[in-house]
Design a protein around this nucleic acid. Structure first.
Lengths: 153, 153
DNA sequence: CTAGAACCTAGAGTCGTGTCTAGATCAACA
DNA sequence: TGTTGATCTAGACACGACTCTAGGTTCTAG
Protein backbone atom coordinates (compact mmCIF):
# COMPACT_ATOMS: atom_id res chain seq x y z
CA UNK A 1 0.00 0.00 0.00
CA UNK A 2 2.84 2.36 0.85
CA UNK A 3 5.12 3.33 -1.99
CA UNK A 4 8.75 4.27 -1.79
CA UNK A 5 10.10 7.21 -3.72
CA UNK A 6 11.82 4.85 -6.13
CA UNK A 7 8.58 3.04 -6.81
CA UNK A 8 6.75 6.31 -7.41
CA UNK A 9 9.53 7.47 -9.70
CA UNK A 10 9.26 4.28 -11.69
CA UNK A 11 5.50 4.48 -11.99
CA UNK A 12 5.14 8.21 -12.54
CA UNK A 13 7.98 8.60 -14.97
CA UNK A 14 9.45 11.40 -12.86
CA UNK A 15 12.90 11.05 -11.36
CA UNK A 16 13.38 10.72 -7.62
CA UNK A 17 15.15 14.06 -7.83
CA UNK A 18 12.12 15.61 -9.45
CA UNK A 19 9.83 14.14 -6.82
CA UNK A 20 11.85 15.68 -4.02
CA UNK A 21 11.99 18.90 -5.97
CA UNK A 22 8.20 18.92 -6.44
CA UNK A 23 7.79 18.36 -2.73
CA UNK A 24 10.07 21.29 -1.88
CA UNK A 25 8.04 23.38 -4.28
CA UNK A 26 4.84 22.46 -2.49
CA UNK A 27 3.24 20.67 -5.39
CA UNK A 28 1.82 17.75 -3.51
CA UNK A 29 -1.84 17.81 -2.63
CA UNK A 30 -1.23 16.25 0.75
CA UNK A 31 2.06 16.59 2.58
CA UNK A 32 4.38 13.68 1.99
CA UNK A 33 4.62 11.56 5.13
CA UNK A 34 7.76 9.90 6.35
CA UNK A 35 8.68 6.60 7.86
CA UNK A 36 10.36 6.73 11.26
CA UNK A 37 13.68 6.48 9.47
CA UNK A 38 12.94 9.60 7.46
CA UNK A 39 12.07 7.94 4.20
CA UNK A 40 9.14 9.25 2.23
CA UNK A 41 6.00 7.22 1.81
CA UNK A 42 3.58 7.80 -1.00
CA UNK A 43 0.21 6.34 -1.88
CA UNK A 44 -1.82 5.60 -4.96
CA UNK A 45 -3.55 8.96 -4.87
CA UNK A 46 -0.19 10.68 -5.03
CA UNK A 47 0.44 8.83 -8.26
CA UNK A 48 -2.93 9.93 -9.55
CA UNK A 49 -2.24 13.51 -8.69
CA UNK A 50 1.21 13.29 -10.26
CA UNK A 51 -0.39 12.00 -13.44
CA UNK A 52 -2.58 15.10 -13.54
CA UNK A 53 0.37 17.33 -12.72
CA UNK A 54 2.31 15.81 -15.56
CA UNK A 55 -0.57 16.44 -17.90
CA UNK A 56 -0.90 20.04 -16.81
CA UNK A 57 2.84 20.51 -17.09
CA UNK A 58 2.89 19.08 -20.57
CA UNK A 59 0.26 21.60 -21.55
CA UNK A 60 2.53 24.37 -20.36
CA UNK A 61 1.09 25.07 -16.95
CA UNK A 62 3.94 26.31 -14.81
CA UNK A 63 4.81 24.77 -11.49
CA UNK A 64 3.95 28.10 -9.91
CA UNK A 65 0.40 27.88 -11.22
CA UNK A 66 0.00 24.28 -10.16
CA UNK A 67 1.18 25.31 -6.72
CA UNK A 68 -1.37 28.13 -6.62
CA UNK A 69 -4.08 25.69 -7.50
CA UNK A 70 -3.09 23.10 -4.96
CA UNK A 71 -2.85 25.79 -2.31
CA UNK A 72 -6.40 26.82 -3.00
CA UNK A 73 -7.50 23.23 -2.75
CA UNK A 74 -5.67 22.81 0.53
CA UNK A 75 -7.46 25.82 1.98
CA UNK A 76 -10.68 23.88 1.72
CA UNK A 77 -14.07 24.97 0.41
CA UNK A 78 -14.98 28.58 -0.26
CA UNK A 79 -12.57 29.44 -3.04
CA UNK A 80 -14.12 27.42 -5.82
CA UNK A 81 -14.54 30.54 -7.91
CA UNK A 82 -10.84 31.23 -7.71
CA UNK A 83 -10.01 27.68 -8.65
CA UNK A 84 -12.37 27.94 -11.58
CA UNK A 85 -10.80 31.22 -12.64
CA UNK A 86 -7.42 29.53 -12.61
CA UNK A 87 -8.60 26.54 -14.60
CA UNK A 88 -10.42 28.69 -17.14
CA UNK A 89 -7.37 30.86 -17.49
CA UNK A 90 -5.25 27.91 -18.37
CA UNK A 91 -7.97 26.52 -20.59
CA UNK A 92 -7.84 29.72 -22.64
CA UNK A 93 -4.12 29.48 -22.73
CA UNK A 94 -4.22 25.93 -24.04
CA UNK A 95 -6.81 26.83 -26.66
CA UNK A 96 -4.60 29.66 -27.85
CA UNK A 97 -1.67 27.30 -28.02
CA UNK A 98 -3.63 24.87 -30.15
CA UNK A 99 -4.65 27.61 -32.56
CA UNK A 100 -1.06 28.79 -32.81
CA UNK A 101 0.18 25.26 -33.45
CA UNK A 102 -2.44 24.64 -36.11
CA UNK A 103 -1.35 27.79 -37.78
CA UNK A 104 2.30 26.78 -37.70
CA UNK A 105 1.33 23.41 -39.02
CA UNK A 106 -0.35 25.01 -42.02
CA UNK A 107 2.76 27.01 -42.78
CA UNK A 108 4.99 23.96 -42.45
CA UNK A 109 2.78 21.75 -44.57
CA UNK A 110 2.79 24.34 -47.27
CA UNK A 111 6.56 24.43 -47.11
CA UNK A 112 6.85 20.65 -47.13
CA UNK A 113 4.62 20.48 -50.18
CA UNK A 114 6.81 22.99 -51.99
CA UNK A 115 9.90 20.99 -51.17
CA UNK A 116 8.28 17.79 -52.32
CA UNK A 117 7.33 19.38 -55.61
CA UNK A 118 10.85 20.60 -56.14
CA UNK A 119 12.39 17.30 -55.23
CA UNK A 120 9.93 15.47 -57.46
CA UNK A 121 10.79 17.71 -60.40
CA UNK A 122 14.48 16.93 -59.95
CA UNK A 123 16.58 18.30 -57.17
CA UNK A 124 18.83 20.60 -59.15
CA UNK A 125 16.10 22.84 -60.35
CA UNK A 126 17.04 26.16 -58.80
CA UNK A 127 15.73 25.87 -55.32
CA UNK A 128 18.48 28.07 -54.09
CA UNK A 129 19.92 31.14 -55.69
CA UNK A 130 22.80 32.46 -53.65
CA UNK A 131 23.39 35.38 -55.98
CA UNK A 132 19.91 36.59 -55.18
CA UNK A 133 20.44 38.38 -51.87
CA UNK A 134 16.74 38.38 -51.06
CA UNK A 135 15.47 34.88 -50.48
CA UNK A 136 11.76 34.39 -50.73
CA UNK A 137 11.40 31.99 -47.85
CA UNK A 138 8.94 34.10 -45.99
CA UNK A 139 6.65 34.33 -48.95
CA UNK A 140 4.33 31.57 -47.84
CA UNK A 141 3.83 33.34 -44.59
CA UNK A 142 2.42 36.17 -46.63
CA UNK A 143 0.14 35.84 -49.59
CA UNK A 144 2.14 36.32 -52.76
CA UNK A 145 4.32 33.28 -53.08
CA UNK A 146 2.94 32.53 -56.49
CA UNK A 147 4.65 35.58 -57.94
CA UNK A 148 8.16 34.27 -57.40
CA UNK A 149 8.15 30.48 -57.27
CA UNK A 150 11.86 29.82 -56.56
CA UNK A 151 11.82 28.96 -52.86
CA UNK A 152 15.16 28.69 -51.20
CA UNK A 153 14.87 28.07 -47.53
CA UNK B 1 15.10 50.34 -47.54
CA UNK B 2 17.75 49.59 -44.91
CA UNK B 3 16.51 48.93 -41.44
CA UNK B 4 18.31 49.61 -38.18
CA UNK B 5 18.32 47.05 -35.40
CA UNK B 6 15.91 49.21 -33.43
CA UNK B 7 13.48 49.32 -36.32
CA UNK B 8 13.68 45.56 -36.76
CA UNK B 9 13.15 45.06 -33.05
CA UNK B 10 10.07 47.25 -33.14
CA UNK B 11 8.61 45.49 -36.16
CA UNK B 12 9.55 41.92 -35.27
CA UNK B 13 8.62 42.06 -31.64
CA UNK B 14 12.03 40.75 -30.67
CA UNK B 15 14.34 42.82 -28.51
CA UNK B 16 17.56 44.29 -29.90
CA UNK B 17 19.33 41.99 -27.46
CA UNK B 18 17.54 39.02 -28.92
CA UNK B 19 18.40 40.08 -32.46
CA UNK B 20 22.09 40.27 -31.65
CA UNK B 21 21.78 36.98 -29.82
CA UNK B 22 20.09 35.35 -32.82
CA UNK B 23 22.87 36.61 -35.03
CA UNK B 24 25.57 35.18 -32.75
CA UNK B 25 23.67 31.91 -32.81
CA UNK B 26 23.71 31.88 -36.59
CA UNK B 27 19.98 32.08 -37.07
CA UNK B 28 19.92 34.56 -39.88
CA UNK B 29 19.46 33.25 -43.39
CA UNK B 30 21.92 35.72 -44.83
CA UNK B 31 24.74 37.22 -42.77
CA UNK B 32 23.84 40.56 -41.27
CA UNK B 33 25.74 43.33 -43.03
CA UNK B 34 27.17 46.35 -41.34
CA UNK B 35 27.44 50.01 -42.12
CA UNK B 36 30.95 51.47 -42.20
CA UNK B 37 30.42 52.57 -38.61
CA UNK B 38 29.74 49.00 -37.55
CA UNK B 39 25.99 49.28 -37.20
CA UNK B 40 23.87 46.44 -38.44
CA UNK B 41 21.62 46.84 -41.42
CA UNK B 42 18.62 44.63 -42.05
CA UNK B 43 16.15 44.33 -44.88
CA UNK B 44 12.54 43.40 -45.36
CA UNK B 45 13.39 39.77 -46.04
CA UNK B 46 15.08 39.55 -42.66
CA UNK B 47 11.82 40.60 -41.10
CA UNK B 48 10.02 37.96 -43.10
CA UNK B 49 12.43 35.30 -41.98
CA UNK B 50 12.18 36.49 -38.39
CA UNK B 51 8.42 36.15 -38.60
CA UNK B 52 8.85 32.53 -39.62
CA UNK B 53 11.45 31.96 -36.94
CA UNK B 54 9.09 33.34 -34.35
CA UNK B 55 6.36 31.04 -35.56
CA UNK B 56 8.63 28.02 -35.44
CA UNK B 57 9.86 29.04 -32.00
CA UNK B 58 6.33 29.43 -30.71
CA UNK B 59 5.63 25.91 -31.87
CA UNK B 60 8.52 24.68 -29.78
CA UNK B 61 11.22 24.37 -32.40
CA UNK B 62 14.51 24.98 -30.66
CA UNK B 63 17.01 27.54 -31.85
CA UNK B 64 19.41 24.65 -32.47
CA UNK B 65 16.99 23.08 -34.93
CA UNK B 66 16.30 26.37 -36.68
CA UNK B 67 20.03 26.82 -37.01
CA UNK B 68 20.39 23.35 -38.51
CA UNK B 69 17.73 24.15 -41.02
CA UNK B 70 19.18 27.49 -42.03
CA UNK B 71 22.61 25.91 -42.34
CA UNK B 72 21.23 23.38 -44.79
CA UNK B 73 19.62 26.17 -46.75
CA UNK B 74 22.87 28.11 -46.80
CA UNK B 75 24.70 25.10 -48.21
CA UNK B 76 22.62 25.43 -51.32
CA UNK B 77 20.81 22.79 -53.32
CA UNK B 78 21.35 19.10 -52.86
CA UNK B 79 20.17 18.59 -49.33
CA UNK B 80 16.45 19.04 -49.86
CA UNK B 81 15.78 15.59 -48.46
CA UNK B 82 17.48 16.53 -45.24
CA UNK B 83 15.54 19.75 -45.01
CA UNK B 84 12.35 17.82 -45.61
CA UNK B 85 13.30 15.32 -42.95
CA UNK B 86 13.79 18.16 -40.52
CA UNK B 87 10.50 19.80 -41.37
CA UNK B 88 8.59 16.55 -41.19
CA UNK B 89 10.19 15.76 -37.89
CA UNK B 90 8.97 18.99 -36.43
CA UNK B 91 5.61 18.55 -38.09
CA UNK B 92 5.18 15.27 -36.24
CA UNK B 93 6.26 16.94 -33.07
CA UNK B 94 3.69 19.70 -33.47
CA UNK B 95 0.96 17.21 -34.26
CA UNK B 96 1.80 15.27 -31.12
CA UNK B 97 1.69 18.49 -29.13
CA UNK B 98 -1.76 19.30 -30.47
CA UNK B 99 -3.06 15.87 -29.53
CA UNK B 100 -1.61 16.20 -26.06
CA UNK B 101 -3.14 19.63 -25.62
CA UNK B 102 -6.54 18.46 -26.79
CA UNK B 103 -6.35 15.69 -24.29
CA UNK B 104 -5.45 18.06 -21.48
CA UNK B 105 -8.27 20.30 -22.58
CA UNK B 106 -10.74 17.46 -22.22
CA UNK B 107 -9.55 16.75 -18.71
CA UNK B 108 -9.71 20.39 -17.76
CA UNK B 109 -13.16 20.93 -19.22
CA UNK B 110 -14.42 17.95 -17.32
CA UNK B 111 -12.97 19.44 -14.16
CA UNK B 112 -14.40 22.86 -14.85
CA UNK B 113 -17.81 21.36 -15.40
CA UNK B 114 -17.59 19.56 -12.07
CA UNK B 115 -16.66 22.76 -10.31
CA UNK B 116 -19.47 24.62 -11.96
CA UNK B 117 -21.95 22.00 -10.86
CA UNK B 118 -20.70 22.20 -7.32
CA UNK B 119 -20.74 25.94 -7.24
CA UNK B 120 -24.21 26.01 -8.75
CA UNK B 121 -25.51 23.61 -6.10
CA UNK B 122 -24.18 25.87 -3.37
CA UNK B 123 -20.59 26.21 -2.52
CA UNK B 124 -20.55 24.57 0.86
CA UNK B 125 -21.61 21.19 -0.35
CA UNK B 126 -18.64 19.05 0.51
CA UNK B 127 -16.25 19.71 -2.30
CA UNK B 128 -13.39 19.21 0.05
CA UNK B 129 -13.01 16.63 2.72
CA UNK B 130 -9.77 17.13 4.58
CA UNK B 131 -10.42 14.21 6.87
CA UNK B 132 -10.43 11.95 3.83
CA UNK B 133 -6.73 11.41 3.28
CA UNK B 134 -7.28 10.15 -0.22
CA UNK B 135 -8.60 12.84 -2.48
CA UNK B 136 -10.25 11.71 -5.64
CA UNK B 137 -8.92 14.44 -7.87
CA UNK B 138 -7.28 12.11 -10.29
CA UNK B 139 -10.44 10.18 -10.78
CA UNK B 140 -11.48 12.00 -13.93
CA UNK B 141 -8.20 11.13 -15.45
CA UNK B 142 -9.20 7.54 -15.02
CA UNK B 143 -12.64 6.11 -15.53
CA UNK B 144 -14.29 5.60 -12.18
CA UNK B 145 -15.09 9.03 -10.87
CA UNK B 146 -18.73 8.16 -10.58
CA UNK B 147 -18.03 5.82 -7.71
CA UNK B 148 -16.94 8.56 -5.35
CA UNK B 149 -18.45 11.87 -6.37
CA UNK B 150 -16.86 14.19 -3.80
CA UNK B 151 -14.21 15.93 -5.80
CA UNK B 152 -11.74 17.98 -3.86
CA UNK B 153 -9.00 19.35 -5.97
C1' DC C 1 29.16 72.32 -28.73
C1' DT C 2 26.48 69.54 -26.02
C1' DA C 3 22.79 66.41 -24.52
C1' DG C 4 20.48 62.45 -25.37
C1' DA C 5 19.30 58.58 -28.14
C1' DA C 6 20.76 54.69 -30.57
C1' DC C 7 24.19 51.72 -31.33
C1' DC C 8 28.50 48.63 -30.40
C1' DT C 9 31.12 44.47 -27.73
C1' DA C 10 32.06 41.11 -24.23
C1' DG C 11 30.49 38.97 -20.82
C1' DA C 12 27.53 38.39 -16.59
C1' DG C 13 22.92 37.43 -14.75
C1' DT C 14 18.13 35.44 -14.73
C1' DC C 15 14.38 32.20 -14.79
C1' DG C 16 12.23 27.81 -14.92
C1' DT C 17 12.84 23.18 -14.44
C1' DG C 18 15.04 20.07 -13.21
C1' DT C 19 19.61 17.05 -12.45
C1' DC C 20 23.59 15.81 -10.04
C1' DT C 21 27.06 15.48 -6.19
C1' DA C 22 28.92 14.63 -1.70
C1' DG C 23 28.59 12.65 2.31
C1' DA C 24 25.66 10.21 5.54
C1' DT C 25 22.26 6.63 7.00
C1' DC C 26 19.87 2.41 6.60
C1' DA C 27 18.20 -2.26 4.95
C1' DA C 28 18.99 -6.73 2.91
C1' DC C 29 21.76 -10.35 1.70
C1' DA C 30 25.93 -13.63 1.20
C1' DT D 1 30.61 -8.63 8.49
C1' DG D 2 30.96 -6.48 4.53
C1' DT D 3 28.93 -4.98 0.35
C1' DT D 4 25.38 -3.30 -2.42
C1' DG D 5 21.63 -0.46 -3.24
C1' DA D 6 18.07 2.69 -1.84
C1' DT D 7 17.35 6.61 0.59
C1' DC D 8 18.34 11.12 3.02
C1' DT D 9 19.98 16.45 3.03
C1' DA D 10 21.93 20.69 1.32
C1' DG D 11 23.55 22.75 -2.14
C1' DA D 12 25.93 23.06 -6.70
C1' DC D 13 25.35 22.64 -11.61
C1' DA D 14 23.02 22.48 -16.35
C1' DC D 15 20.48 24.21 -20.10
C1' DG D 16 17.70 27.02 -23.21
C1' DA D 17 16.65 31.35 -24.33
C1' DC D 18 17.05 35.28 -23.46
C1' DT D 19 18.14 39.89 -20.78
C1' DC D 20 20.97 43.11 -18.86
C1' DT D 21 25.33 45.72 -17.62
C1' DA D 22 29.48 48.28 -18.24
C1' DG D 23 31.97 50.96 -20.85
C1' DG D 24 32.57 52.90 -25.22
C1' DT D 25 31.29 55.09 -29.98
C1' DT D 26 28.31 57.54 -33.11
C1' DC D 27 24.36 60.10 -34.79
C1' DT D 28 21.01 63.90 -34.42
C1' DA D 29 18.73 68.02 -32.70
C1' DG D 30 19.01 72.28 -30.54
Amino acid sequence: MDLSIGEVARRSGLSVHALRFYEREGLFANPVRRLSNGRRIYHEEDLEWLAICTKLRSSGMSLAMIRQYIELARQGPGNEHERLRLLRHHENHVEAQIRELQDTLDVMRHKVRIYEDHVARGEADRLWNPSHPSHSDAAQAGTHQDCHPPEDT
